[in-house]
C-alpha cells in the first residue's frame, strides 16, 4: 500500500502529465461546445481512429523490441490496393482479404530479415524501414498509376468489416489479444527481454533472429488488417491512403507512455494514447483549428512526450541513487 505523501502525488502527476493536459483540453472544449461529450461523438472518435489504432498496436511490439517500423503507412496503402484490385477482378471476399493480409506479412518479413541480417538496432531498423516505406509506397502506385480505385464491392464479409461498430470491435479485440500475448505468454515476455537487452537475451538461449522477424511480420499483418477495415469503410482504395500513418502511430505510442528505448510498454497504453490523440484532434476540430495547425501540435506533442519520459527516468535514477547513498 503506497502512502499518499506529497512525493507520491508529485510522481503521479509527473507520470501522467500528458493525460492531465488532455483532460484540461476536454473540459475547456466541453464548455465551449457541449455536443463534444456525447456518446455519439465518442463512438465517432473511436471509429475514426480504429485503423490507426490497429496499426499502432502492431508497431508497439516493434518499439518494445527496441526496433522501429516506418513502413506501416505504405503497407496500409499497398494492402488496400491489392484487396480492392482482387475484388474488382472477381476474387471471393475471403481470398481478397487473405491477399491483403499476406502482402502485409510479406513486407514485414522482408523488413525483419533485412534488419536481422545485419544485427540491426533501432537506428538501422529506422533507416531500412524508411527505405522500405519509399519502395512499398512506389509499388502501391504502380497498378493504377497513382489514381484512386473505386471498388465494386458486394455486400458480404468484406463490406461488413468497415460498417457500424465493427471497426471498433476489431480494434479493441485485437488490442486485447495483443496485450494478453505480451503479458501472459512466453513469447511476450521474450519480446520485453529482447527489447531491454538483446545480447543477454541471445546468451540466455532465446532465438533472437526469428523472434525479431516475427515482430515486423506482426506489424505488417496489423497494417494489412487496418487497410482492410479502411477500404471496407470507403469501398475504394487510394494508393496514398496510408501516408503519414507511421507518424500518427508513433505519436499514439509515445503519448500512451511506451518508452522509445524499448524493453517495456503495453498495448493498452497505446490504445489510450490513440484515443487521447483522437479526442484532442476532435476537440481542436471543434475549436476550428485547421489540419495543418494540428500537424504542428502533433509534432510538438511527440517531442514533449518523449522528453517527459526521458526526464522522468533521469529523476528516478537520481532518487534511487540518493536512497542508496543514504542507506550506505
Amino acid at each position: 500500500m503506497r502512502k499518499l505523501t506529497s512525493k507520491t502525488i508529485r510522481n503521479a502527476i509527473r507520470d501522467n502529465a500528458i493525460f492531465i493536459v488532455v483532460l484540461l483540453l476536454i473540459i475547456i472544449t466541453a464548455f465551449i461546445e457541449p455536443s463534444f461529450i456525447t456518446w455519439d461523438n465518442l463512438l465517432n472518435i473511436l471509429r475514426q481512429n480504429a485503423t490507426i489504432g490497429i496499426v499502432a498496436c502492431g508497431m508497439t511490439y516493434c518499439i518494445i523490441a527496441g526496433l522501429f517500423d516506418l513502413s506501416v503507412g505504405s503497407i496500409v496503402s499497398l494492402s488496400g490496393v491489392i484487396v480492392i484490385l482482387s475484388i474488382n477482378a472477381g476474387v471471393p471476399d475471403y481470398l481478397a482479404v487473405g491477399y491483403g493480409l499476406l502482402a502485409g506479412i510479406a513486407v514485414g518479413v522482408i523488413n525483419g530479415t533485412l534488419v536481422s541480417l545485419i544485427n540491426g538496432r533501432s537506428g538501422e531498423a529506422f533507416i531500412i524501414t524508411y527505405g522500405m516505406q519509399v519502395v512499398v509506397a512506389a509499388i502501391a502506385l504502380f497498378p493504377s498509376n497513382g489514381l484512386f480505385i473505386a471498388g465494386r464491392v458486394k455486400p458480404g464479409i468484406f463490406m461488413s468489416m468497415g460498417q457500424g461498430m465493427t471497426p471498433i470491435i476489431i480494434f479493441l479485440s485485437l488490442a486485447a489479444i495483443m496485450q494478453f500475448i505480451l503479458v501472459k505468454t512466453r513469447y511476450g515476455r521474450q519480446l520485453c527481454y529482447i527489447g531491454s537487452n538483446i545480447s543477454a537475451a541471445n546468451m540466455s538461449g532465446i532465438r533472437v533472429k526469428p523472434n525479431r522477424i516475427s515482430y515486423f511480420a506482426i506489424s505488417g499483418l496489423m497494417s494489412g488488417i487496418a487497410a482492410i477495415v479502411l477500404c471496407s469503410r470507403v469501398t475504394s482504395s487510394n494508393p496514398t491512403a496510408g501516408l503519414g500513418y507511421e507518424m500518427d502511430a508513433i505519436a499514439g505510442i509515445v503519448v500512451g507512455g511506451t518508452s522509445m528505448s524499448g524493453g517495456s510498454g503495453s498495448v493498452f497504453r497505446t490504445v489510450l494514447g490513440i484515443i487521447i490523440i483522437g479526442i484532442m484532434s476532435n476537440a481542436l476540430n471543434i475549436l476550428g483549428i485547421t489540419a495543418y495547425h494540428q500537424q504542428v501540435v502533433k509534432g510538438l506533442l511527440i517531442i514533449a512526450a518523449v522528453s517527459m519520459d526521458i526526464w522522468n527516468k533521469r529523476i528516478k535514477v537520481r532518487e534511487i541513487a540518493n536512497e542508496k547513498a543514504y542507506i550506505g
Partner: peptide, 21 residues
C-alpha cells in the same frame, strides 16, 4: 538526450506543418 531519429521525426512534422500553416 532524445534519440536523434525520434526528436527529428517530431520536428520534421512540426516544421512541415508550420510551412503549410
Amino acid at each position: 538526450r532524445i534519440p536523434a531519429f525520434v526528436a527529428t521525426l517530431g520536428t520534421m512534422t512540426a516544421i512541415k506543418g508550420l510551412a503549410y500553416v
